[in-house]
Amino acid sequence: MGEAEFLFLLTGLKWTVLLSLVGFAGGGICGLAVALMRSSGIAPLERGTAGYIALFQGTPLLMQLFVVYYGLALVGLKLDAWVAVAIGFTLHASAYLGEIWRGSIEAVPRGQTEAAKALSLHYVARMKDVILPQAIRISLPATIGFLVQLIKGTSLAAIVGFTELTRAGNIVSNQTFKPLLVFGVVGILYFLLCWPLSLYGAHLERRMAVAAR
């Protein structure tokens, strides 16, 4: 495996990083909306988001990407591969993050909401200043765990034509006939991407634990 092949893998890594960032951003924003609706106390919103979460947690990501890219094309909605993948990952990640954060919001003691209400803090301030900062701390291990999963899950974008890291590894491996070496390198690149995230999560957890104690 020469320099050219390695650079090709790095190009794949670039796509993996970009896909992950799209998933994080889309999943984070929509996931927060899902979590807030799911814990809103407004029955139709809670039921709607519960169904959404059940649907996207209950079906494989691969199938979701298939449906968004090929399925919608069949009914006449031809999406750009980027758009399709962005939608697919956002739907997937927002269902998982929404559920993780819903649980964390509900894990914040009731007295916090009551104290905030008694101080006449309205909904936005109550959430932004009182509940969410505590919920984020509670949710940190699960959130980081899911984001790491999501990075690895971006390999599925290969099915709609992205030459991301895993697909790049596949191509190089087929050219060089050195699968062990190539996928060894691919594995190391994934690890170098995921491990700092886990470390950062652990660091954040420690820092927030100090602040709260």
Partner: peptide
Amino acid sequence: RREVGMVFQHFNLFPH
């Protein structure tokens, strides 16, 4: 609520 203050049994201070 702006006119009425409340103190709770378990304080309910914001820990963060």
